[in-house]
């Protein structure tokens, strides 16, 4: 009882003092569902169930706070890169409580996350996670601007906002550099590009897609832009009539440009006749759901306009971009 006045005095003083450091670092951001996520302090234990968002966290330098990842992070196409950056992934020590499709709630809760990053369409899983009092950041990437928004929001939630802004300023500079070279091209000089997904020669993307943005960014035209579908299978007749001057293949373990050049039905296509069929390198280096889309745009631009973009400098450009994004 005798201690009470001292406690009261301390409490009063506490009220007059500046807020504690944790309170000062309270963070908030709005996710792609339009929900505001408010954390008392920057996230310290993050479960990230989206591989591209995981890449974003590594770019922000917040990888040490990741305690759970998507099963996709252990796929052969990306694992070597993550393994080089993080010994926990190299040694397969980071748990995988879910992916783009499913979430193992028990595994996830046992990791005691203070933030879960997940696709916004995984509504049932989000409801179940939020019902346990865990904040959820829902992501949707439909355009490149969404990648910028995602990075900015993750920067805010992890207290790495300055790094996010630095990355985005760098991205804007690269984009401006590409635009400066292609903006003066007259319409008749603009390359007409057919984009070929790895699932088949006739699988492409129409207007509302990151592929459309990518081609546009490179100063070219998507021949399938007239079709209002994100991902579609087109009829070969239409490809022959579109007669694209350049074919860009997504990285394809089953086919390479030489095989496309040999397809008998495609011989009338200008891109095949002029041997202008190109394939993206590994998925990790030009992922269209991360800032690495900048390298993809550079590649497409240099394939379309070798006179404007030096194709010999692409390897260095790739190394430089990866070093800028992930550090050395």
């Amino acid at each position: 009882m005798r201690q009470r006045p001292a406690v009261l005095l301390l409490a009063l003083l506490g009220g007059l003092l500046p807020p504690s450091s944790a309170q000062a670092q309270a963070v908030r951001a709005t996710d792609f569902r339009g929900r505001e996520i408010a954390l008392a302090q920057p996230a310290q234990r993050i479960v990230c169930l989206i591989e591209s968002a995981l890449s974003g966290l590594y770019m922000l330098g917040a990888q040490d706070r990741v305690v759970g990842v998507s099963t996709s992070a252990y796929e052969e196409s990306v694992l070597p890169y993550y393994a080089a950056m993080d010994p926990r992934l190299r040694d397969r020590l980071l748990p995988t409580p879910g992916n783009w499709d499913f979430v193992n709630l028990e595994s996830l809760v046992s990791l005691k996350p203070d933030l879960v990053v997940i696709w916004s369409h995984q509504e049932e899983s989000i409801r179940a996670i939020e019902a346990r009092g865990i904040p959820v950041f829902g992501v949707f990437v439909g355009r490149f601007a969404d990648i910028h928004q995602e990075l900015r929001a993750l920067g805010a939630l992890t207290g790495t906002g300055a790094r996010a802004e630095e990355l985005l300023r760098g991205a804007d500079q690269i984009l401006e550099g590409i635009r400066r070279k292609t903006s003066g091209l007259p319409p008749e000089r603009r390359a007409r590009v057919y984009f070929m997904w790895a699932q088949g020669e006739l699988e492409t993307s129409g207007r509302p897609s990151t592929v459309q943005e990518l081609i546009h960014l490179a100063g070219a035209e998507n021949v399938a832009a007239g079709i209002d579908q994100e991902h579609l299978v087109v009829n070969l007749e239409n490809v022959l009539l579109w007669n694209p001057g350049v074919i860009v293949m997504w990285h394809n373990p089953r086919r390479d440009p030489a095989q496309v050049l040999a397809l008998s039905a495609w011989q009338s296509v200008a891109a095949v006749r002029q041997r202008r069929v190109y394939e993206f390198p590994e998925v990790f280096t030009c992922d269209l759901w991360t800032l690495k889309y900048l390298f993809a745009a550079k590649l497409v631009a240099s394939w379309c306009y070798p006179e404007l973009f030096d194709p010999t400098g692409l390897e260095k450009a790739q190394r430089d971009l990866l070093a800028t994004l992930y550090g050395n």
């Binding site: 070969l236 007749e237 022959l240 009539l241 039905a265």
Partner: peptide
């Protein structure tokens, strides 16, 4: 030539 290709190689 395009018509021939479409008829012979596609349809």
């Amino acid at each position: 030539p395009l018509l021939r290709t479409i008829l012979w190689e596609v349809r």
